[in-house]
Amino acid sequence: MNLDKKAKRTKYNLFVPKKKMKLNLNKQQTYKETKEIIHRLYLQSLRRPTSLIINMIQPLLWLLLFGALFQNAPIYLFEQYKIQYREFLNPGIIIFTGFNSAINAGLPLMFDREFGFLNRILISPITNKNSIIYSCVIHTWFIAITQIIAIILLTIYQTNKDINININQLITTIGISTIIITNISTISICNALILPGHIEFIALTTLLINLPTLFASTALAPLSFMPTWLQIICCINPLTYAIEIIRSHNLHASISVNTEIINANWLTINVQQGILILILINITSIRIVRNIIKYKYD
């Protein structure tokens, strides 16, 4: 038996290349490939303006309807926050807007798979397949950030009747939203490469990920309102840290890295730890998706 195993191993070793080829990836070429794929994605979006309009209207409806539903809630209802519910809700709607756009980032890639366009891209003289990831993430980021800025302007107008933007708050909001958009976009791309079709993709994102992720966060209610088991799920959810960082920065004149954003009986997280958690999850997601593309399509 041992001789047979050695003979088979020797036989298969003949097909293993003795020398591995190293591709000299040109950064300028990668940039050009990413730019062309982004241009293609933008053309697809412009030819389907209804999807852009719906994506813009949906978060505004959440903001208007939920804000109107709880506008008469007691001002001391939300722990230490002596604010209207609309002000409490706004950071959650901002992050959920970025999340909602990012979770559908892999949908164009899924349609390319089904209609055969992805095969054409892969057999084209493309030097770096990571440009597929970069282009999808950048395209999604641009659309999501546009929606977030529109929500910020609408909220400021409703509150002050005057457009006066705090640059520090805007930079913090865009920075934290970028981490979430990049993270969720890579997960969406991973689903687009693994799932068999767009029906499974939409069912997974809409039914099993979208709304449960929203309600299992502090977007709509503070952590103290929840039972212990739901608090644990919320602390696992990366959206919670992003929402609380933006909420703390918006409700206070200034925050530091030691400002607490999660203060439960069994867990305490500050701003620095929250950002490190988001970055760690982000790096892990990107590496996983890059390996999937490498071993699935090489």
Rank of each mutant, 00 (worst) to 15 (best):
I37L: 13
D112W: 00
S188Y: 02
A68S: 13
Y241M: 14
I165F: 05
R287H: 07
F201K: 00
Y42S: 13
L251H: 01
G197H: 14
H39P: 01
P222A: 06
V289Q: 00
R48I: 03
T34M: 08
A150H: 02
K35P: 03
V16Y: 05
L122D: 01
F142W: 10
Q28H: 15
N291G: 10
I232C: 00
N164A: 12
I152K: 08
L46I: 05
F225D: 11
N237G: 04
A264K: 14
T159I: 15
T228S: 05
I95Q: 03
Y85A: 06
S254I: 09
L61P: 05
N90Y: 15
I174L: 07
I75L: 13
N128I: 00
L122Q: 02
S124W: 00
P222M: 00
L220C: 10
A219Y: 04
K294N: 14
T50N: 12
T182A: 10
N26H: 01
N2M: 11
T213D: 10
A73C: 10
E87Y: 02
A219P: 05
L52D: 03
M21S: 15
V16G: 08
I275W: 08
I184S: 03
Y85C: 06
L223G: 01
P108A: 04
E114T: 07
P222N: 01
L43E: 11
V289C: 01
M110S: 07
Q80F: 05
E244I: 05
K20L: 15
D298L: 14
I95A: 06
S45W: 00
I103C: 10
K27Q: 02
K294A: 07
T228L: 05
N90P: 09
L251A: 04
D4V: 15
T173M: 10
A242N: 09
S45N: 08
C190R: 15
I95N: 02
L3H: 11
T268L: 03
A221S: 12
T155Q: 15
A144G: 04
G274K: 01
L89I: 12
L276K: 10
T228A: 07
F66M: 11
Y42K: 02
F15Y: 11
T173F: 06
Y81E: 14
C235W: 06
L239I: 06
R113K: 07
I38L: 08
T178S: 14
A7W: 09
